[in-house]
């Protein structure tokens, strides 16, 4: 229940982020018991490289405090959508924070927004969308995979977010988003293998006052097909981009300085005696040796309000007519 509002102390049932080092971050649940792989109730113990942690011991500890382990220590953090993205169980490829950030800003999502998402996947983006729309907005998220739908619904409940999200099993490409969402959405997010099949259905869910759409696709061919459909349907401001993040590690490097001046005079045996080798300290920021070079292309577009839609279609049409046959 630890994703809603800012909390001071860990309660029973909270999802807690355990921080050991910058690359060793885990999510655990502050509960005395857990189910083993065989479905038997066992004591909830989390094994870390620095010793075992009885998860029940976390209850009552303040967030941001130090936890002693048998061979070291760690810190407990209240989960944020960003930390959850870093630690969640992967059931699919997930969307990472740099893309998530751009999606939320470009879709102009704020408290009160009604957002439609498909597919839900592992719920990485969903958590950030919920944070942005709550408490007065709502996220409607769809996935065609039954098991994924059930798992993510359970996670939302465990995280105390159920009031702000509705998860449904549905193939939006073939059956659209459902009548109950007609003209309800401020924005739509698509992460589908064939987004161009779902785009026509988004015309029914976006509000009459207009809205924004985003399609996330790893391949440029998907982007081309999507853009073509968006333009035909009268979407405007169609824009495709990618965002890649580099994380730097700050280091102080010690560089020895060579003294070559002594070479000018004849050897007398004193050159190296009692001389400390001079060292220059240099603070630098080093990018990782290898990093992700591609995540996906983000395509954004606006659906104009109904009173401007037909005009936009004729504008897009005219532009296409002007372009030579391909």
């Amino acid at each position: 229940m630890s994703f809603d509002d800012y909390k001071a102390v860990i309660d029973e049932g909270d999802t807690v982020i355990l921080y050991l080092t910058i690359s060793q971050i885990y999510s655990i649940r502050a509960e005395a018991k857990t189910l083993s792989k065989k479905g038997v109730e066992v004591e909830n113990v989390f094994q870390t490289p620095y010793g075992a942690l009885k998860c029940a011991d976390l209850i009552g500890k303040p967030y941001g405090s130090k936890i002693t382990l048998s061979k070291g220590w760690g810190y407990v953090m209240q989960p944020t959508p960003e930390l959850w993205t870093q630690t969640l169980p992967h059931r699919t490829q997930i969307i990472y924070t740099p893309d998530i950030s751009m999606i939320i800003l470009q879709l102009e999502i704020a408290p009160g927004s009604i957002v439609v998402e498909s597919g839900t996947g592992s719920g990485s983006l969903s958590h950030a969308l919920i944070r942005a729309v709550k408490p007065t907005g709502h996220l409607y998220t769809f996935d065609f995979h039954k098991n994924r739908v059930e798992l993510v619904r359970e996670e939302f409940a465990q995280h105390g977010l159920s009031d702000y999200v509705t998860v449904s099993q549905r193939d939006v490409c073939s059956s659209g988003f459902g009548d109950e969402l007609e003209n309800k959405a401020d924005s739509v997010f698509l992460d589908l293998p064939h987004p161009w099949q779902a785009i026509p259905h988004t015309l029914n869910v976006i509000k009459e006052t207009g809205g924004r759409i985003c399609s996330f696709s790893p391949c440029i061919e998907q982007v081309q097909k999507s853009c073509e459909v968006l333009s035909k349907l009268g979407f405007q401001e169609i824009q495709t981009m990618e965002v890649l993040q580099t994380s730097y590690s700050v280091q102080t490097r010690k560089l020895p300085v060579l003294d070559l001046d002594f070479l000018k005079s004849e050897k007398d045996g004193t050159e190296t005696k009692g001389k400390e080798r001079e060292v220059v300290k240099c603070v630098t920021a080093v990018p990782p040796a290898s990093m992700p070079g591609h995540t996906g292309y983000l395509t954004f577009a606006s659906l104009p309000p109904v009173w401007a839609r037909s005009l936009q279609i004729s504008l897009n049409q005219a532009q296409e007519d002007n372009s030579p046959d391909l």
Binding site: Y19, I22, I25, M77, P98, V223, Q224, C227, E228, I238, Q239, T240, M241, E242, V243, L244, Q245, T246, S247, Y248, V250, A285, Y297, T299, S323, L326
Partner: peptide, 16 residues
Amino acid sequence: HIKIVTNFMRNYQVLA
């Protein structure tokens, strides 16, 4: 959890 990040962002011309 101190991190310094920067981004590479670019836009695409998408035409057949």
